Amino acid sequence: MTGYFITLEGVEGSGKSTQIKLIKKYLESLNYEVINTFEPGDTEVGQEIRRILLNPNHENLLPKAELLLYTAERAQHVSELIKPSLKEGKIVISDRYIDATMAYQGYARGINKSLIEELNNIATEGLIPDLTLVFDINPSLSLQRAKRVTSKSNSQGDRIEAENLSFHQKVRKAYLDLAQKEDRIEIVDASKSINEVFDQVKILLKKRLIR
């Protein structure tokens, strides 16, 4: 029995973390066995890499070093968690995966896209999601959301959130471009209320997964 691999993508503050919980609960109500995970950091090794990647004090982290750290974390994530769960026939839902690297390090940082594709392929051993949901929202709105969450938790914003608006606009454009090229990618209007967004998600799940 083979599992089903879903990834969630979008700019900072697009609501992925809220929707991933709702999706898990919904699919479990339909008797699917579901594993939620995320990048970077959902393995012991990944936690160490995450601390480096998101530390706002690391302003001098080179884009190529950033890329290599993300793909190293992904290699561990795929081998340790994602592939074993899929082999057990589970639905795996990951908050970020290969498209995030293309969007953030490729489009926004300007790193060679062919290089990113090659590194992603090495890290994942060719594992491509069955379905990718891109939560699309204008970054000028989503970054306000992200900052409110950070403020409520009394935590310091991470290094990626701190990038300027132009950077996040490039990320958004990347996801929209990728959706034009990849049949597995579906766009969700994330500017709506939580319930309205989830209604869109359920329609897509019924279309792609639920038979």
Rank of each mutant, 00 (worst) to 15 (best):
F5Y: 15
E9S: 04
G10S: 14
I20M: 15
N31P: 10
E39F: 05
G41E: 13
D42N: 15
I49S: 01
R50P: 07
R50G: 11
R51N: 12
L53F: 03
N55A: 04
P63H: 06
L68W: 01
E73W: 11
E73M: 13
A75G: 11
V78K: 01
S79G: 15
I82N: 02
P84S: 06
L86D: 06
V92K: 07
R96Q: 07
M102A: 15
A103V: 05
A103T: 05
Y107P: 01
A108C: 09
G110M: 01
E118C: 12
L119R: 00
N120K: 02
N121M: 12
G126E: 07
G126W: 11
L127S: 12
L133V: 04
I137H: 04
I137T: 07
N138I: 12
S140D: 14
L141E: 15
V149F: 04
S151D: 09
K152W: 05
S153F: 12
A162T: 12
N164Y: 05
N164H: 06
F167E: 04
Q169H: 02
K170P: 02
V171I: 13
R172I: 01
K173C: 06
L176Y: 11
L178K: 01
E186D: 14
V188Q: 08
A190C: 08
S191W: 12
S193D: 07
N195P: 06
F198T: 02
K207E: 13
